[in-house]
Design a protein around this nucleic acid. Structure first.
Ligand SMILES: NC(=O)c1ccc[n+]([C@@H]2O[C@H](COP(=O)([O-])OP(=O)(O)OC[C@H]3O[C@@H](n4cnc5c(N)ncnc54)[C@H](O)[C@@H]3O)[C@@H](O)[C@H]2O)c1
Ligand SMILES: NC(=O)c1ccc[n+]([C@@H]2O[C@H](COP(=O)([O-])OP(=O)(O)OC[C@H]3O[C@@H](n4cnc5c(N)ncnc54)[C@H](O)[C@@H]3O)[C@@H](O)[C@H]2O)c1
Lengths: 256, 256
DNA sequence: AGGCGCTTGTGAAGACGTGCACAAATCGCG
DNA sequence: CGCGATTTGTGCACGTCTTCACAAGCGCCT
């Protein structure tokens, strides 16, 4: 997203602070590694092998090693990775050393749940502002934060040093809210409304859409049903490995 | 996931119901096309060009055409795609012609929001059961549905023909819930708990993790900050196209 | 009927991501 | 001190996804 870099241009000649330039797929997996590492640290481990961390994070161990190798060499051959060191390193790369302030716009059904969620604080984020357009919601206090009117966004953004905006309004309002966020300098948006947002170059948008996830599941469910309905077609492949365990992956790509 | 099809085997000789075998990346985008098509239909359009639909869905038009070409040729050259026909076709491929029943496990903070969400029904899903382990929550009525105890899952699964399970419990309980869902025959799970689930082959798991999304945004925010702090490094590439609009994409990875 | 403009469908090339397999490195122990 | 067990880091080959570019097809207008 927001890519440039002339196709033929030499990356960068004078090697400055490195600018990791990680593959996007790797970036998407780092948070998962981080979570697994925190789990391991809490259960008393000090080091972990690529195999161990990979299975805790649900990925292939070769992939994990390659991902980590992009950050530099922080493992010890024959031993594994120092958990504390790796946590620091990943947090540093992800920019989690500083706590980032989040503004949540749209304090309805979903917004309430997000506002009351304590899983953000423990991962380096602080919900710093709740905003809504409905006057009857303004003034309500949730989890120690008072809902303010969306028109106050410019002031709030400066006062609270907002870095990330979360949109939890109905879809028709989402584009307008995004525009307002961009106008006050927010360059990262997480959008829960089922619609695409147009934003200027340099602004990152990530979308979470439940219905899409369900529909993808529906497709596979549908396909599985068609397959079992035609047992003659695929041969015996289906019945192989009936007890094998597998961890299926996600969006990735999907990230997807 | 759970792929087969012998590499050298001739696709299919006797053309049965086709078994499209779509690329996963395409499957992940179809729901987005579907949403865009519904929007277009509501605003009175009857046909749409690949360019028009692509921009409504936030993707490249060549990618859209290739995606749709996998379903067959449902466009008319020189004209575009018939919206109603395409909607039917995509819904059929995604298996949305039948309404699928969803069981929601964990009716806490997030579960309440999901239970009260009407965006599922309009997309081919029905929340058919609410389940929780906390006795004080059992019996509560939300949106016309009564919360039942998780121990009733086996009976509920049969009575309501549950096709998809949604896990909205704390992470430590998620694996046990997944096991229970699998035990009653559920083969598609949407997991909101921040943990990896182990499931038997043939069961699909998709995960939604807010903190991961925020951390990915944090990374890009961090990178943008480092770049502007070193304005001499990249030359003038950054200031090019200052007014251009772009629609950034999502998880992709995941598809990704 | 014929030509013209528009749009689809797809071949080909390149970018990207994945996973195997193995050399290099490290530790512990005799 | 040397050796074997272990585990990382990575070269390489393969598969998937994306994007360009263009021929083929369609409808409309004259
Ligand atoms: N509830 C869920 O579980 C759920 C699940 C998936 C997606 N979503 C999506 O999340 C969004 C919010 O869902 P919800 O159920 O919370 O809806 P909701 O109607 O309960 O809440 C929306 C809130 O946004 C506020 N709002 C409207 N326009 C605004 C504006 N211009 N500026 C600021 N605030 C504004 C409203 O006052 C309201 O408080 C929707 O787009 C929905 O599709 C919700
Ligand atoms: N609240 C949010 O906005 C949010 C956001 C992102 C992720 N999540 C994740 O979603 C999950 C739920 O979050 P929450 O805020 O709703 O938590 P919560 O504590 O409010 O609700 C959890 C519910 O699950 C029930 N439960 C616990 N064990 C169970 C079991 N074995 N079987 C059935 N039910 C069981 C509890 O009784 C409770 O009602 C958590 O994993 C959380 O990390 C929540």
């Amino acid at each position: 997203m927001s890519q440039h870099r002339h196709p033929g241009a030499p990356g960068r000649a004078g090697a400055v602070p490195a600018l990791p330039d990680l593959p996007e797929a790797t970036v998407a997996r780092l948070p998962e590694y981080l979570r697994a590492l925190h789990n391991l640290a809490e259960t008393g481990h000090e080091t972990v092998s690529s195999e161990g961390l990979a299975s805790a994070a649900g990925v292939n161990s070769a992939k994990l090693r390659k991902d980590l190798s992009h950050l530099g060499s922080y493992g010890t051959r024959g031993v594994g990775y120092d958990i504390a060191l790796l946590v620091d390193q990943i947090e540093s790369v992800l920019g989690l050393t500083q706590c980032r302030s989040v503004a949540l716009v749209g304090v309805g059904n979903l917004g309430h749940a997000l506002a009351g969620y304590d899983g953000f604080a423990s991962r380096g984020f602080r919900i710093a502002a709740l905003l809504d357009a409905d006057p009857s919601r303004v003034g309500e206090e949730i989890n120690g934060l008072v809902v303010r009117h969306i028109d106050e966004l410019p002031r709030v953004a400066v006062e609270e040093a907002i870095a990330i905006g979360v949109i939890a309004t109905p879809a028709p309002a989402a584009q307008a809210v995004a525009d307002q966020l961009v106008a006050v300098g927010v360059t990262s948006i997480l959008n829960f409304a089922p619609c695409v947002l147009s934003v200027p170059e340099g602004v990152d948008v990530r979308k979470v859409d439940l219905a899409i996830e369900l529909q993808i599941l529906s497709f596979h469910e549908h396909r599985k049903a068609s397959l079992t309905a035609l047992p003659a077609a695929g041969g015996s492949a289906l019945t192989a490995l009936p007890g094998g365990l597998a961890v299926t992956d996600t969006q990735e790509a999907i990230g997807t």
